[in-house]
Amino acid sequence: MIVGDRKPLEEILDYIKDYKKIMLMGCGGCVTVCFSGGSKAAELLASQIKMARKQAGNEIEIIECTPTRQCEYEFLEEFAEQVKSVEAVLSIACGVGVQAMAVQFPEKHTVPGLNTKFMGYPVEHAVWEEKCAGCGDCVLEWTGGLCPISRCAKKLLNGPCGGSVDKVCEVNKDVECVWHTIYDRLKVLGKLENLTKVRKAKDWRTSTNAGQRRITFEEAML
């Protein structure tokens, strides 16, 4: 899932300081699961904003709504009338949702309430970890199902580097060295030979540096 993290309240208040009536739009997708952008998060944020503005003697009206997914136009259409009635939209979807809103309602200023962090999953209750960088050329087959592109601080394909000690990354002692884990995993799978080959330089064209990427699923085309 896409994991987001709420921006500091002060930053959000600054974004909307010129507005008296806004829509606070959550998302029923990934960010609901990670607690940062669902209807409950929207409710909490709305009350925090109202309280802060009331204290500042500058009250604000907030319409809350949480579409099934903010990243698809078809779920946004039904809010067209409400969007018209406000001065701006505060979106607590991921960056994809914010952009879908900005495109669907180009006349309206849509501002982000979250910092979109990464693609990952919960490793324990309320703790998420990054697991995929969307590099566009998956290597999980030979790495024992563990991604060095998203999880190694140097994106090595021939790790672990010399800073791997006690299974921990030199960059952050709270982070496991994914290359040590890959080694352990491949040992269990009896596939250590996967690590004896020099892995060639990655073709980064599939990644984020060739401009916006686009996928077409031919069979589903209308």
């Binding site: 140097k154 090595l156 394909l157 020099v198 892995r199 980064w204």
Partner: peptide, 14 residues
């Protein structure tokens, strides 16, 4: 921002 377009192994090979 770090680069690591190639890693040390790939640099040697290059």
């Amino acid at each position: 921002k770090n680069v690591y377009c190639v890693d040390s192994m790939q640099l040697i090979a290059m």
